[in-house]
Write a protein that binds this DNA or RNA. Structure first.
Length: 567
RNA sequence: CGGGGCGUAGCGCAGCCUGGUAGCGCACCUGCCUUGGGCGCAGGGGGUCGUUGGUUCAAAUCCGACCGCCCCGACCA
């Protein structure tokens, strides 16, 4: 294509509203334009890149036996009511009514519709397994869209769904997806992590997320130094660091002491001269309307995700100050488990075996010392703590670090949640009705592009891998008004096309600096510069990523680039 | 939804405090010039100052309401 005929609206300056790099560059390089909060128009370049991402996804999905479909994006309420998610999804679901006042929603995921198709058509075990997928627009009414294409209200997702007769079949479909995702993200040039993940509202037994380390991300993962353990912080488990001071010995009785005005863990630590690890942190939570006292080591943080899982609760929130006053007779900052009988007490595993610790006395401005779990109060133990940097792997001596990441893919073993609730049954070999087991698997298409930009850029723009760049090579005559340069450039361009390269001819009547800056900005991996060495029959091939140039013969230029990209 | 910031030409911004002619850089158009890293010179076009109500002889500027966008938090398959 000829640049002079294309719409590539590059900007010299960063738009003020963009904060994260991928957002800035996608705007500046003319890939996208915003329509509204969390809604973007994908212009020519974005569409080309996204189509390349989609092409990779499609090849790898087809390679594991996926069958591509395209489902409706507008759904009747009924199927969501059947699965129970009409209510669960809450405000994140775009809802509307048709002219007959019937409830509809815009699809935010497609378990329900896929299960609807399956239950209407699948009758026999002979038809299983099935692996169905689509690449389609999803709609989610995010509370706070942000960071360019990273969190939006409308986006493209590859979502696939597996139907199997048994858990072994699901295991295979899951593993096939895991491997396919690795190939997809590698081909897209991403350095990624595959981490153990929490299943969340999707339900199901096992889940992995595919993450790209980036400051622009919103998820945190715990990673061991040798990479043998990788898990989302919502799910991660660890051995905590040792307490900073040994517990006092002996079988001592709780003893009240005044702590005037000291409410926080840090204040009490400073006041007593003992480290935060010597304290029991008491948090009052309300799970589905019922109070529960949660205990953690002073320096640890509660994982609400784990608490929800342990309690099997639908909703968990911190107690209000008035509730705390009513239940404890004291305010937050002086709370503790001793003498508490009006609610269950749940303690984190890091408190098991500890002795003679400090906690609140349930009397304002007083704490207790010499408090020992299970002796001075009864409690149940569970893993409730959020892993912290510096913790250790459960089963090795590897230290854990915490990384900020972008989620680009997520795979779930769903189990029977949807097939059961929506009545998907087939007959097995014995003629009995059985419920197939399902998995679901997603990739955020725009996030793959955004993450690639986050991971590969410099001060001049994007450095996209050839596999997802909008063009593989740009042929740039330094002076398009020079007939010899232009015709040589055209010949190289045509040769590139003949060799199957995605080539662009920068035939614009611009100064060379403008063309170079634009090519760098939009991140075309290779540039063939036709200029001052043409009289010697030479042109220059420059790699965007390394900035390294080599001189090649005009006749060899296209083949040279092809060799660099396709080996 | 709570907190903060911002809305003036396509983009980036000044002007607002202290009311009175709407400005700068880039981009754009025309001509000349130039051609290896966002050239140079000359001329030119483009703005309901987010919307709305109020105060005033007079509002981009002061006051109120609303809308939109961004950031932090809450939230988030």
């Amino acid at each position: 294509m000829r640049w002079s005929k294309l719409f590539i609206p590059t900007l010299r300056e960063n738009p003020a509203e963009a904060e994260v790099v991928s957002h800035q560059l996608l705007l500046r390089a003319g890939y996208i334009r915003q329509l509204s909060a969390g809604l973007y128009n994908y212009l020519f370049l974005a569409q080309r890149s996204l189509n390349k991402v989609i092409g990779i996804v499609r090849e790898e999905m087809d390679a594991i036996g996926g069958q591509e479909m395209l489902l409706a994006a507008l759904h009747p309420a009924e199927i969501w009511q059947e699965s129970g998610r009409w209510d669960v999804m809450g405000q994140n679901m775009f809802r509307l009514k048709d002219r007959f006042d019937r409830d509809l929603c815009l699809g935010m995921t497609h378990e329900e519709v896929m299960t609807f198709i399956a239950r209407g058509e699948l009758r026999s075990y002979k038809q299983l397994p099935q692996l169905w997928y689509q690449i389609q627009t999803k709609f989610r009414d995010e509370p706070r869209p942000k960071s360019g294409l990273l969190r939006v209200r409308q986006f493209l997702m590859k979502d696939s769904y597996s139907f199997d007769m048994d858990a072994a079949g699901l295991d295979l479909a899951y593993q096939n997806h895991y491997d396919a995702y690795c190939r997809i993200f590698s081909r897209a040039g991403l350095q990624y992590l595959a981490v153990e993940a929490h299943s969340g509202a999707m339900g199901g037994s096992q889940s992995h997320e595919f993450m790209v380390a980036s400051e622009a991300g919103e998820d945190f993962v715990a990673v061991s130094a040798d990479g043998s353990y990788q898990a989302n912080l919502e799910k991660a488990v660890s051995r905590p660091t040792l307490p900073l001071a040994p517990d006092p010995e002996g079988d001592r009785a709780p003893e009240k002491f005044p702590t005037p005005g000291r409410k926080t863990i840090a204040e009490v630590a400073a006041f007593t001269g003992l480290p935060e690890t010597a304290q029991i942190k008491s948090l009052v939570m309300v799970a589905d309307g019922k109070p529960v006292l949660v205990l953690l080591r002073g320096d640890h943080q509660l994982s609400e995700t784990k608490l929800v899982t342990v309690l099997g609760a639908a909703d968990v929130r911190p107690a209000h100050p008035a509730e705390i006053r009513e239940w404890f007779g004291a305010d937050a900052g002086s709370l503790g488990p001793v003498g508490i009988t009006n609610m269950p007490v749940l303690a984190d595993l890091a408190l098991r075996g500890r002795r003679n610790m400090i906690c609140g006395a349930n009397e304002d401005d007083y704490h207790l010392r010499h408090v020992t779990p299970e002796e001075d109060f009864a409690c149940a133990f569970a893993d409730l703590r959020q892993v912290a940097a510096g913790d250790w792997c459960l089963d090795s001596d590897q230290p854990l670090e915490i990384r900020k990441t972008i989620e680009i893919g997520h795979i779930f073993k769903l189990g029977y949640k949807y097939s059961e609730s929506m009545g998907l049954r087939v007959l097995n070999a014995e003629g009995h009705e059985v419920t197939p087991i399902m998995g679901s698997y997603g990739i955020g298409i725009e996030r793959v592009l955004s993450a690639a930009v986050e991971q590969h850029h410099d001060k001049d723009g994007m450095m996209l891998p050839p596999s997802i760049a909008p063009f593989e090579v740009v042929v740039t005559p330094v002076n398009a008004a020079e007939p010899a340069q232009l015709s040589a450039a055209e010949a190289i361009y045509r040769r590139c096309r003949e060799l199957g390269l995605d080539a662009l001819l920068d035939d614009r009547d611009e100064r060379p600096g403008v063309k170079f800056k634009d090519a760098d900005l939009i991140g075309i991996p290779y540039r063939v510069t036709v200029g001052k060495k043409l009289p010697q029959g030479m042109v220059e091939v420059t790699e965007r990523r390394t900035r390294q140039s080599v001189d090649v013969l005009v006749a060899d230029a296209a083949a040279h680039v092809r060799g660099r990209i396709h080996g």
